[in-house]
Computed example of a mutant assay.
Amino acid sequence: MQSPEIVAIVLSSLFIISTLAPFIKWDDWWIRVFDFPRLQLCIFGLVALVVCLTGFSFASPLSFIFTGLLLIGILYQAVKILPYTPFYRKEVIRFRGKEDHTNRISILVSNVLSPNRKARKLLHLIRRKKPNLVLTLESDTWWQQQLDTLEKDYPYTVKIPLDNLYGMHLYSNLELEDAQVIYLVKDDIPSIEAYVKLPSGKKIKIYCLHPMPPSPTEDDTSTDRDAELLLVGEKVKAREESVLVFGDLNDVAWSYTTILFRKISRLMDPRIGRGMFSTFHAHYFFLRWPLDHLFHSNDFMLNRIQRLPGIGSDHFPIYADLQYKPIAGMAQKEPEANGEDKQLAREKIARANPVNKKEKTKYTSKD
């Protein structure tokens, strides 16, 4: 066997194994990690295909088998990421009607990276974009001191400064009601639930999340992360109200867990048909995927969604501007869960043994 053929076999084998790994529904991090780099794997597969076409003599069936499996794998990876390209039908309609600022809401989400000290960059973005809601993740006491300069313009706040990489701060210039800090799966990883009141008087339920990722340094499995997402999905499903879910979900938009979450919650993704809006990793362009998300009920339309410039963190901030428009629900088809989806969600939640602890919340609001 010639060296080019050996290289072709090695590259195609690596690609095929990486493509097949996510089909194993184990929660182990070394399996779930292959959910993330589908674009990178697609490119790697194309490189392997070129090597196969130039390196194989095609004198044996093995050459045809490896090349055929490569083609199938490349097609599969492309299909998985296709919804997050402009070549796919848009799931959320862009709002083009008469301006109605009383029913408009904008959100900026930023995982700041606790050791990062470039707070001025984030504050500059906030003052430039003027979002209604600002959610920071990994924000500790130092970050809180920097962010508190926003309070003149954002008088409604929920502050959870932590040193464990799961601190969370919410600043709003719209009135918050019934804000609560919830510990869904672990007693040191918070989430925020609240109602935000639009100028029109309409109340929107919001969920701010940052579950623990599956990784060798944080959690050996995706069990807790998956359960946290699905617990919120069950909460959303159980209540007929307008909803926004946003944060760093430590999962990609095309993973089977995030898709299951969207089916259970019936929430929509404004990125579908528009782009990936990859927010991580900010420092390595060849290792990027969408980890920071915003999902909404089907009574919203999109004004704008945008990945913002870096602030020194390993995440780019993401910004979305939405229009509350109940009539949109007639034209926007929301995801739906079948019986198998619901059973799988129940099993994954039970496996995590969630704590569901509520903290007596002290949040500040305008008098």
Results as ranks from 00 to 15, higher is better:
residue 4 P to E: 06
residue 5 E to L: 00
residue 5 E to F: 08
residue 8 A to N: 03
residue 13 S to I: 02
residue 18 S to N: 11
residue 19 T to G: 03
residue 22 P to N: 06
residue 24 I to N: 13
residue 24 I to K: 05
residue 27 D to F: 02
residue 30 W to C: 11
residue 31 I to G: 10
residue 31 I to S: 01
residue 35 D to C: 07
residue 37 P to F: 07
residue 37 P to H: 10
residue 40 Q to E: 14
residue 42 C to S: 13
residue 43 I to N: 03
residue 46 L to M: 00
residue 48 A to P: 00
residue 49 L to E: 01
residue 50 V to F: 09
residue 52 C to D: 12
residue 53 L to K: 12
residue 55 G to V: 11
residue 58 F to D: 01
residue 65 I to C: 04
residue 69 L to T: 07
residue 70 L to P: 07
residue 72 I to R: 03
residue 72 I to D: 01
residue 77 Q to N: 00
residue 89 R to E: 14
residue 92 V to Y: 03
residue 94 R to W: 02
residue 94 R to Y: 02
residue 95 F to S: 09
residue 96 R to G: 08
residue 107 I to Q: 01
residue 109 V to C: 15
residue 113 L to T: 15
residue 115 P to H: 05
residue 115 P to W: 04
residue 116 N to Q: 04
residue 119 A to F: 04
residue 122 L to I: 09
residue 126 I to C: 07
residue 127 R to I: 08
residue 128 R to S: 15
residue 133 L to Y: 11
residue 134 V to A: 12
residue 134 V to P: 14
residue 135 L to M: 06
residue 137 L to C: 06
residue 137 L to N: 11
residue 139 S to I: 01
residue 140 D to S: 00
residue 142 W to R: 09
residue 144 Q to Y: 05
residue 146 Q to V: 08
residue 148 D to H: 10
residue 150 L to S: 05
residue 151 E to G: 04
residue 153 D to R: 03
residue 153 D to L: 13
residue 154 Y to D: 12
residue 154 Y to H: 04
residue 155 P to C: 11
residue 158 V to K: 12
residue 158 V to E: 14
residue 162 L to P: 01
residue 166 Y to S: 10
residue 167 G to D: 09
residue 175 E to I: 08
residue 175 E to N: 02
residue 179 A to K: 07
residue 185 V to W: 10
residue 191 S to I: 03
residue 192 I to Y: 00
residue 192 I to L: 10
residue 195 Y to I: 07
residue 197 K to M: 15
residue 203 K to Q: 15
residue 203 K to M: 11
residue 204 I to D: 10
residue 204 I to T: 00
residue 207 Y to I: 08
residue 207 Y to K: 13
residue 209 L to F: 09
residue 210 H to V: 13
residue 215 S to M: 08
residue 216 P to C: 00
residue 216 P to I: 11
residue 218 E to K: 11
residue 223 T to Y: 02
residue 224 D to G: 13
residue 225 R to I: 03
residue 227 A to V: 08
residue 227 A to E: 12
residue 228 E to G: 04
residue 228 E to Q: 02
residue 229 L to S: 09
residue 232 V to P: 01
residue 236 V to P: 06
residue 244 L to P: 09
residue 250 N to D: 03
residue 251 D to M: 06
residue 252 V to W: 04
residue 254 W to S: 02
residue 255 S to V: 13
residue 256 Y to K: 15
residue 258 T to D: 11
residue 260 L to F: 05
residue 261 F to P: 10
residue 264 I to D: 02
residue 267 L to A: 13
residue 267 L to H: 00
residue 268 M to S: 15
residue 270 P to G: 09
residue 271 R to P: 14
residue 272 I to N: 02
residue 276 M to D: 12
residue 286 F to N: 04
residue 287 L to H: 03
residue 289 W to E: 13
residue 292 D to L: 04
residue 296 H to T: 00
residue 299 D to T: 01
residue 299 D to P: 05
residue 301 M to Q: 15
residue 309 P to H: 13
residue 312 G to F: 09
residue 318 I to S: 01
residue 319 Y to T: 00
residue 319 Y to A: 00
residue 323 Q to L: 02
residue 324 Y to V: 04
residue 324 Y to C: 10
residue 327 I to L: 15
residue 327 I to W: 05
residue 328 A to Y: 01
residue 332 Q to D: 11
residue 333 K to N: 15
residue 343 Q to L: 15
residue 343 Q to I: 13
residue 348 K to S: 10
residue 356 N to R: 06
residue 365 S to P: 07
residue 365 S to Q: 11
residue 366 K to A: 12
